[in-house]
Design a protein around this nucleic acid. Structure first.
Length: 404
DNA sequence: TCTGGGGTCCTAGGACCC
DNA sequence: TCTGGGGTCCTAGGACCC
C-alpha cells in the first residue's frame, strides 16, 4: 500500500505571523498587504531579509538578501522585526490543529510539517483532507499554507513548493515527468548553489536531465550525495515521517559582533556569554557534551572552526568554557578582525546514560550545584541577573539574549 | 546602513592500534 | 630499489536545510 503523505508549508511564515500579532495588538495595517519584509537589524550588522510579503516579492525582493539591496529594488519597502515567541505560538497552533488529523506528524521546521495520513483517511481521500486542513487553517488561524500531496516526503515537499500562496498540489508517480522533470535542477530539494553549476557544466540542466543521468557516474563524482540527488530526481525517497522528537546532536550559539574585534580578551568575554547560553540549554536537555567547538568569521567572511574533546562528558559552564578558551587560543593566532564568534557543543550523550567514572570528582558536583543555582536565578529574574565575574563588561560589546 | 543564526550530515586526512 | 592493510577515533571544512 502506498503511503499517503502531506507536506504543509506556511506561506511567508515569519511575515504572516508577525502580521497577525500586530493586528491582534490593535494595529490597523495588515503588513501582508503592503511591500514589507521581516528583517534583521542593520545596526547590529545583521540586516538581511528573513521573510517577504507578496508585494515585496513582486518587486523582486528575495529572502536572504541584504535590506540594502531589497530597498533598491523596492524603494517604499517597510521593514519590521520579528519575534521568536510569536512564531512559536502560531507554529504550535498549527501543530495542534494538524494533530486532529494524524498523530504521525514531523515538525520539520518551525513552519513546516510532514503528515503521514496512510492509516488516518477513514474512507475519505487525501485531497479532501488537504482541502479541509487548508480551509480550517485559513479560517481558524488566519494564515495560509501550501500543501503538497504525494506518496513520499520528498515528492510532497517538492509539491508544496510549486505555485504559492494558498495552494494545494499533488505529485504522484505518474506526474513526476510532467510536473517535476521540466524544473531547473536548483529547484530539487538538497541541490544547492554549489552543486547546480557543477551539474550545469555536465549539461545537466533540468531535474529530468539529472534523473536520466547514469546513477553510477553521479556516485563516482559526488559519492553518497550523488546517489541521493539521483534518487530525488527520480522521486525515490523511503524515509519515514519522524514524529518522535529526537535528542539534539549539537547545541550552539553564535553572534555577529557590532564591530570587528581583534583582542583575544574581548573575544573571550563574548565566548563566555555564548557558552553560558549553550550550557544552559544543554543542562535543560539533560545531556552532556563530549566536544567543544568554536567558530570564527573574519571581516572578509572567511569562516573557520576548531574543536576539542573534553576529558569527560560534562555540562558544566566552567569546564566547557575553559575548553572553549583553549580552542580559541589555539585557533586565533593571526589577529584577524573577527566579525562573528560562535560556541557549540557536540557529541551529546544522555546524562543518565553516562557511565559512572572513577574520575568523577567532588569538583564536578560542586560545579553542577553552582550551575543549578545560576540557572534557577536566571529563570526567576531573567538573564544577566547574575553573571560570572569575567563577563562584567561584555554588555558593552554585545548583549546576548536567549532565543526563547 | 551589505552579507543571520540554528542545525544535520558527509568527507578526507592523520594518528594510532593490531 | 622493499616499505601492508583494516579499523577506529579525531579534526577541519564544506554542503545543505529552514
Amino acid at each position: 500500500m502506498e503511503r499517503q503523505i502531506l507536506h504543509i508549508d506556511v506561506n511567508n511564515a515569519f511575515l504572516s505571523w508577525t502580521a497577525l500579532e500586530k493586528l491582534d495588538n490593535g494595529e490597523k495595517i495588515d503588513i501582508r498587504e503592503i511591500p514589507a519584509v521581516i528583517g534583521g537589524d542593520e545596526s547590529k550588522r545583521s540586516g538581511i531579509v528573513l521573510a517577504k510579503s507578496m508585494k515585496a516579492k513582486e518587486c523582486g525582493v528575495a529572502t536572504g538578501e541584504t535590506l540594502y539591496q531589497a530597498r533598491i529594488k523596492c524603494p517604499n519597502l517597510q521593514v519590521f522585526s520579528g519575534n521568536f515567541k510569536t512564531y512559536r505560538k502560531y507554529s504550535d497552533k498549527l501543530y495542534n490543529l494538524l494533530l486532529e488529523y494524524t498523530d504521525i506528524i514531523e515538525r520539520y521546521s518551525i513552519d513546516e510539517c510532514f503528515l503521514d495520513m496512510t492509516n488516518f483517511l477513514a474512507g475519505s481521500s487525501l485531497i479532501k483532507k488537504a482541502n479541509e486542513i487548508s480551509k480550517r487553517v485559513k479560517e481558524e488561524l488566519g494564515f495560509t499554507v501550501n500543501i503538497g500531496l504525494a506518496n513520499n516526503k520528498l515528492l510532497a515537499k517538492m509539491a508544496s513548493d510549486f505555485e504559492k500562496p494558498d495552494k494545494i498540489h499533488t505529485l504522484f508517480k505518474n506526474e513526476i515527468e510532467t510536473k517535476m522533470w521540466p524544473l531547473p535542477i536548483k529547484d530539487l530539494f538538497m541541490l544547492g548553489r554549489k552543486t547546480a553549476p557543477k551539474l550545469y557544466n555536465m549539461n545537466i540542466k533540468t531535474i529530468g536531465d539529472l534523473a536520466k543521468t547514469d546513477k553510477n557516474l553521479l556516485i563516482k563524482i559526488f559519492g553518497k550525495y550523488g546517489r541521493l540527488i539521483w534518487e530525488y530526481a527520480n522521486g525515490i525517497d523511503e524515509s519515514d515521517v519522524k514524529y518522535i522528537k529526537e535528542d539534539p546532536k549539537s547545541i550552539g550559539n553564535s553572534v555577529t559582533l557590532p564591530r570587528d574585534l581583534r583582542q583575544i580578551e574581548e573575544l573571550e568575554e563574548v565566548l563566555l556569554a555564548l557558552v553560558e547560553q549553550v550550557t544552559y540549554r544543554l543542562r535543560k536537555t539533560k545531556m552532556l557534551a563530549t566536544t567543544v567547538n568554536v567558530q570564527l568569521r573574519t571581516k572578509d567572511f572567511e569562516d573557520f572552526s576548531h574543536q576539542k574533546k573534553l576529558p569527560m562528558p560534562t555540562s558544566n559552564t566552567k569546564d566547557i568554557y575553559n575548553k572553549a578558551k583553549e580552542v580559541l587560543k589555539e585557533m586565533y593566532k593571526d589577529k584577524l578582525p573577527i566579525r562573528l564568534i560562535g560556541a557549540r557543543v557536540d557529541g551529546l550523550i544522555k546524562k543518565n546514560e553516562m557511565q559512572l567514572s572513577l574520575f568523577d570528582s567532588k569538583g564536578d558536583e560542586k560545579q553542577e550545584k553552582i550551575d543549578n543555582i545560576i540557572d534557577n536565578l536566571n529563570e526567576k529574574y531573567g538573564y544577566n541577573s547574575i553573571t560570572r565575574a569575567g563577563k562584567l563588561n561584555i554588555n558593552d560589546i554585545v548583549n546576548i539574549k536567549p532565543k526563547e
